[in-house]
């Protein structure tokens, strides 16, 4: 059983991770590189005498840097794939059907738990923006992801108002408590770039997660069908 989970997770994570990496390099990376020019002081936004052009060709491929990004994107989505296929294995064990089409819903739920809910109070950050202590933000991030994932599982598989009520509390609590925020805003990056970056990061994340869910559902249902035939 564990071998089937591992096989499905590796295939699904690698496929979705590659697609996510390409989308990120094309849509997200140019915004990040643009922002780094403000972070490093090559471009100055506030108080500049002359207007800074909003459009800048920061293109070009840095083989080492972009290669590492592809590698780490694949790793991150493989990690997410292990979590998702593990949850799918639990669902199958309880008689809940899983396939590629249902996997799309799983992917959307994963996106909400691991990207959208944390971003609701801690939006994706450009390099150089003001932010609170990184350890505190990481703890808040992890707590929010876990709490939201549990809430979505309760909504999807729970029965009755006790489960749904608990889900509502788990969904709201991280944002009512609030994410760690900086004491003052000091970032040198134009807010327009920050907005574009957050939108693009979330959009690419949603596409990647939906792909991951579909692949995970596809590979897991295939592995499970194979197991039933040989049994």
């Amino acid at each position: 059983m564990f071998g089937k989970v591992v096989t499905s997770a590796l295939f699904a994570g690698f496929a979705a991770g590659l697609i996510a990496a390409l989308l990120q390099l094309y849509f997200v990376q140019p915004v990040l590189l643009h922002a780094e020019l403000y972070e490093g002081g090559e471009l100055i936004h506030f108080g500049a005498e002359s207007a800074v052009p909003a459009h800048l060709d920061v293109g070009g491929i840095d083989v080492v840097r972009d290669g590492l990004s592809v590698l780490f994107t694949v790793l991150v989505y493989t990690g997410y794939a292990f979590i998702m296929v593990g949850a799918m294995a639990l669902a199958s064990d309880r008689g809940i059907a899983v396939d590629a089409r249902r996997g799309i819903l799983w992917g959307l739920a994963g996106f909400v738990a691991f990207q959208f809910a944390p971003a609701f109070s801690l939006p994706p950050e450009l390099p150089g923006v003001a932010a609170a202590d990184v350890t505190l933000r990481q703890i808040w991030w992890a707590a929010t992801a876990i709490s939201t994932a549990l809430a979505l599982a309760l909504i999807a598989f729970g029965k009755g108002w006790a489960a749904w009520g608990a889900a509502i509390v788990l969904l709201l609590a991280p944002h009512v408590i609030g994410a760690p925020q900086p004491e003052v805003f000091t970032g040198p990056v134009p807010p327009e770039l920050g907005g574009e970056f957050a939108g693009r990061a979330l959009g690419v994340g949603m596409a990647a997660w939906v792909t991951l869910g579909a692949f995970a559902g596809f590979f897991w249902s295939r592995e499970l069908a194979g197991a039933l035939q040989t049994a």
Binding site: Q29, F72, T73, A119, L122, A131, W141, V204
Partner: peptide, 14 residues
């Protein structure tokens, strides 16, 4: 090594 991916994936980075 993971810098750009952490930012693009919405992890707290710095």
């Amino acid at each position: 090594a993971a810098h750009d991916v952490r930012h693009a994936t919405g992890f707290p980075c710095h």
